[in-house]
Design a protein around this nucleic acid. Structure first.
Lengths: 350, 350
DNA sequence: TTGAAAGCGATACCAG
DNA sequence: CTGGTATCGCTTTCAA
């Protein structure tokens, strides 16, 4: 139900009748012998109030159990303290890292609203509109591809916005992330350096996934640079989850194509492949080497442990949140595009 | 920065000068030849407005790009459309399931604010206070243990509140979850039924974790019922993560105590134990059987696959969200305590 | 079916 | 250092 249900009497019998919920600034002030205005100041800039007054106000807040009404404050100041975050999915632990990073960066001064796009551009657009109606003071998007409407609304709103994940050249406002192209390129080079010559590539469907598409592009670019030609028969897309990785590996091994390594990028594909290889008795990396991405504790613990790319997802969230806060507070932010890079974790599988 | 930065002229040059952000209801009304009041009605209850008027208003909204200001609406109606959710951690995929469930239940009519308690009661209290300041219209807590202050504030606030997870007898308001005691009991009985006689128990530290404590209590109760006495030397607590499970298993195996099965409950402990057993060549379940909880895709895919308890975390979130919405909308909610149970997934490891 | 007036509970701005 | 007054943009309430 709504808030402030109690009767709104004009007098205030202290610390008894009302819950802190329906106490207003004026009530706190009355008890402290000052106006609501002074209470407001005391709360937001204690320095600007005489110490004696401040003490009385603090006491008054305690006895009344006053809880500031941020809705009123936001309306009045035309500025909320809520930040909105849109991720493709709330249940995916990849994004969970970033969410936690953003939350940590906000601290106690800002609150976090979240929504998932359901991996759909239209979903993201809807979430953005909902946030704008709530007059969030900043937005973090996990993605750099958006509908035209979303871009326009965001620009019109004139609130700071950070796009995270796949770095692009022309962010709406700010961006922090890494280059999927570089990541694909780097892993490809790593495998070549290790002596692998017939490398398969597996990703989630690239049609609606610019990250996967760019990693593949990077992968191919690295091959080309080494004068190696890609075998399109062992470049595939697969479903998500451990199963997706397992199936892809089987398809490759049964394809009849020569292949000494597989780079599976995205989600837990590589783990699925390793588990499947273990089940079938295919020796890793002797029979087939395996490399992955989106590193996590599991890839480190499974046997053989998986060589993979680590993306700084938590750090991305933190930086995004921090940049937003800086901007909201009017402080200038340095570079508007931050590349946090990635790291190749060398392990047993490749 | 804040919202509505543009100049607030009194006249409105259509669809040109202003962004939808600084268009107010009155502006929309003026263009449609009605008052702001009628626009408000059209938005919240289209039926109550003449169809011709409605059409003009819709048109006007489109051309002006009007975006309702929920802050003003909430202040005026003394009722927001934001729901607050507190989880121990945002990065843990266990809670991510519940978060997604809540978000899905809210649909597009409500927005979701999240905060993490950092696994601390004080942290939860702080998050609750922040939500109350934002005047959320309902709260979901992932946990049933709270500080006295938190309980009091929540009760005073008189907003609906759902506690999820470990079921308790006396919820602040509503509760949905499962019994950790029953879960521990059930798995214990399962193992006994399968013929195991010397069963070890591993959990995260129970000191600040009522769920773990209750699962252990359930485990012990089941042994007792079978006249089996527990061997306190193989009842341990361990750190979190795959490593925690691995270490616990090693401690048990090297303890010199007889032991034919281990029930590791919480997080990914069981998976860690299985991977460690594989590394050391301890045959599962012949040498040692292993059972877990918090089932996930991984436990199903690892070899041997892990027998474990599946908790309906997504469903819990959904129900919690749905109950909240019902209550916020003033509809009566049936039972205030819902037990969604759990399921034992029989697999190869025990 | 529609509108005018009076809030909602804070903050901005200007005085004192 | 403190207070009065006018908003902020919408909804409630009552009247037409």
């Amino acid at each position: 139900m709504g808030f402030a249900h109690k009767q709104q009497g004009t007098t205030l019998s202290l610390a008894t009748s009302r819950s802190g919920f329906s106490v207003r600034m004026a009530d706190v002030g009355r008890l402290a012998g000052v106006s609501a205005m002074t209470v407001s100041r005391a709360l937001r800039d204690p320095q600007s109030v005489a110490t004696a007054t401040l003490r009385r106000i603090e006491q008054s807040i305690k006895t009344t159990g006053y809880l500031p009404n941020r809705i009123a404050g936001s309306l009045s100041s035309r500025r909320s303290n809520v930040i909105g975050l849109v991720v493709p999915s709330l249940r995916n632990s990849l994004f969970a890292e970033t969410i936690q990073g953003v939350a940590d960066a906000l601290g106690s001064a800002y609150d976090l609203m979240v929504a998932d796009s359901g991996y759909a551009l239209k979903g993201e657009e809807a979430a953005i509109l909902a946030f704008l109606r709530q007059r969030v003071c900043g937005i973090v998007l996990h993605n750099t591809k958006h509908t035209p409407t979303a871009r326009r609304q965001l620009a019109d709103a004139e609130i700071p916005c950070v796009e995270t994940g796949n770095l692009i050249r022309e962010p709406i406002d700010m961006a922090v992330g890494f280059s999927n192209f570089s990541a694909g390129f780097a892993m490809s080079e790593y495998l070549i350096r290790r002596g692998y010559r017939r490398i398969a590539f597996v990703s989630l469907p690239t049609a609606d996934n610019d990250r996967a598409a760019q990693r593949r592009a990077g992968f191919l670019a690295a091959l080309e640079r080494q004068q190696m030609k890609a075998d399109s028969r062992i470049i595939l897309e697969t479903g998500s989850g451990l199963r997706g990785g397992a199936e892809a590996l089987v398809r490759i091994m049964k394809s009849g194509r020569r292949c000494d390594a597989v780079f599976l990028t995205g989600d837990v594909l590589a783990t699925g492949a390793v588990l499947e290889a273990n089940r079938r008795g295919w020796k890793i990396p002797e029979r087939i080497a395996i490399a992955g991405s989106d590193d996590n504790e599991l890839q480190e613990s499974v046997r053989p442990s998986i060589t993979s790319i680590r993306f700084p997802r938590y750090e991305i969230g933190r930086r995004a949140g921090a940049m937003l806060v800086e901007r909201v507070q009017g402080r200038p932010v340095g570079r508007a595009i931050i590349d946090l890079g990635f790291e190749i974790m060398e392990r047993e599988s490749a």
